[in-house]
């Protein structure tokens, strides 16, 4: 009888010591820190971005753009995107005001007809500029939208990581996301998305993480759709933080006449 008691208490004790319970409290904190490190480094950012969309057969659509970002109050942000290529769309510019807790404002400039139009897109899970990334993947998902669970400590490519499981509170295209978050930098190194059939369908990978101005920066990332075979690779070149972008750059005037100093 006492043997069983010992056994049971050993099991109970080891269970209490398990990382899942130890970290239960701070799963949400880890995600918060991760979002800050990934989406909000510096006061602002300037980068040249190369985006490669690859279809199942290997055919590619290439996009080259300059991305400017400025953090506003709280978790609000402003983005300015200028397309260099493909050649026949050069000059197309895109601007996003991101707000926490409400829909973004988006504007687009179409040079061929010299038109600025507002674009309404209510779904933050919709594709970002036609890529496998969603708007959320580029600028972050509301912390409140998911429940988080600390799964385990682990290592990924030799780096110690927190493994966190997120489950959306209201139904969306995925039912579960597993993130491998670097313990040192809080950068998500890998994320797996599970669809409503319960199977893995999308994988995010931070393939290259550098340090820019003392801050971690993901310079190469991919999002692969396992099921469709479609893949998007994004390479950030010449990232600079805290370059001193002024608010007036993020305006319709500059959308029509891009700020050359920052675009290059």
């Amino acid at each position: 009888m006492s043997k069983y008691l010992v056994l049971v208490s050993i099991i109970l004790f080891s269970y209490m010591l398990s990382p899942a319970l130890l970290h239960a409290e701070d799963a949400t904190d880890i995600v918060k820190k991760s979002q800050n490190a990934f989406f909000y480094p510096g006061k602002d950012m300037q980068a040249r971005v190369k985006m490669t969309l690859t279809g199942k057969t290997g055919q590619q659509r290439l996009r080259e753009l300059t991305m400017l970002r400025k953090n506003s109050d709280g978790s609000d942000q402003k983005y300015f995107i200028y397309f260099h290529s493909p050649g026949d769309v050069r000059g197309t510019s895109f601007m996003v005001y991101k707000y926490s807790g409400k829909d973004d404002d988006r504007w687009l400039f179409i040079p061929a007809i010299n038109l600025v139009t507002r674009i309404a897109s209510r779904d933050s899970r919709s594709s970002f500029v036609g890529s496998d990334f969603t708007y959320e993947d580029v600028s972050g998902r509301d912390i409140e939208s998911d429940n988080y669970k600390y799964v385990r400590e682990d290592t990924l490519d030799g780096k110690p990581v927190h493994v966190i499981e997120s489950t959306p509170k209201s139904s969306t295209e995925y039912i579960k996301k597993i993130s491998w978050i670097d313990k040192a930098t809080y950068i998500p190194l890998k994320e797996e998305y599970y669809d409503v059939q319960g199977s893995l369908y999308k994988v995010f990978t931070a393939e290259k993480v550098d340090t820019v101005g003392g801050l971690p920066a993901v310079t190469k990332r991919t999002m692969s759709n396992i099921k469709s075979g479609h893949k998007t690779e994004v390479v950030f070149e010449n990232i600079s933080y805290n370059v001193g972008l002024s608010d007036d750059i993020f305006s319709e005037r500059y959308l029509r006449k891009p700020p050359e100093k920052w675009i290059k």
Binding site: G55, V89, T92, I110, P111, I113, G130, H230
Partner: peptide, 24 residues
């Protein structure tokens, strides 16, 4: 539209706004 650029930019806009599949 009458110009190649206009068509290109419309399709680009469409590709940016819709699902990747829609254009593919």
């Amino acid at each position: 539209p009458a110009s190649t650029e206009e068509i290109a930019q419309y399709l680009f806009l469409f590709g940016m706004s819709a699902k990747p599949r829609d254009l593919d």
